[in-house]
Design a protein around this nucleic acid. Structure first.
Ligand code: FES
Ligand code: FES
Lengths: 156, 156
DNA sequence: TTAAATACTTAGTAAATCAGTCAGGAATAG
DNA sequence: CTATTCCTGACTGATTTACTAAGTATTTAA
């Protein structure tokens, strides 16, 4: 578990997709422009997100990315784990066997805390943020500002 | 809010101090040896922890660091905030005024999530980890292994 | 009073990571 | 066919990490 601006970019982008799920696939170019993230950087991130089974790419005109699972089944922890390398646990290298087979003190202290945190972030799924009162108003505003989905019907 | 190995080091070191609170000040040399963190790196981290009022340094022989507040009043969020620079929120630079005075969509999505996370980590205080069943056994084991506090009485 | 132990400070550094560019290839709709 | 999109890989400057080195300041104990 690790949390950096990289994770922030990924979570933001995933939320953008989730918010437009009903309109159809969302292009990285749109996300790049609206959320202010470099296109090439997004491509790197989505390469990881796709390999981890969180999104599904659709090529060709009218394509883009869509969620590979319902928003209710994608947690923030999933996204961060997919994008950020897990930080290593020094001494034992994640094996947890410094102390003759069992976890040593250092390991256990951090391990316990990380588990708590991971459990917390696993409980936060994308859909929890989609239907908040103020959000949908902002989405509409932003879409208009950037002229997104102007000739797009509600997708199949 | 940001979470990296740097934060891990700080939290681990703080827990080491908290675990020996009754024995007296803990030296960075001891922490360095037992938790496997470079001494000079610890000095940098504790410089920040001290400036943020989380620990109190005691100079001279028999000195070390002790908590500046009760363990129940020091949260993991406090430690991480003290040590890790807060990550910036790109476009607006934390001001939250992209959108004509109010927070834009990008900002709001991340802001809401960060608040949830921060609230969670603020609720986790050091003392919650001190009295877990397995921990005290491990502390004793480690102290013996490194010969810590062999001629030290319970401090005033 | 001296010596040792500790906190504290600053400067420097190799390696890693971040965030991005660039250049192209592959699939698909019209 | 052509434009649009995903997709991949190589490369890069800037920053951060984690650490080393070298000192100074303060306190205790002999
Ligand atoms: S650091 Fe993992 S068991 Fe010791
Ligand atoms: S990024 Fe902060 S308000 Fe837009």
């Amino acid at each position: 578990m690790k949390l950096s601006t990289k994770g922030r970019y990924a979570v933001t982008a995933m939320m953008d997709i989730a918010l437009h799920e009903k309109v159809g696939p969302v292009t990285l170019a749109d996300i790049s422009q609206c959320q202010g993230i470099s296109l090439s950087y997004l491509e790197q991130l989505f390469s990881k997100l796709r390999r981890n089974g969180l999104v599904q790419g659709v090529r060709g005109p009218g394509g883009g990315y869509r969620l590979a699972k319902p928003a209710s089944e994608i947690s923030v922890a999933d996204i961060i784990d997919a994008v950020d390398e897990k930080m290593d646990l020094t001494k034992c290298g994640g094996k947890g066997n410094c102390d003759g087979g069992s976890k040593c003190l250092t390991h256990k202290l951090w391990y316990d805390l990380t588990c708590d945190l991971h459990r917390f972030l696993s409980g936060i799924t994308l859909d929890q943020y989609l239907n908040r009162p103020h959000i949908n108003e902002l989405v509409k505003k932003q879409d208009e500002q950037y002229g997104r989905f102007i000739n797009r019907r509600t997708a199949a």
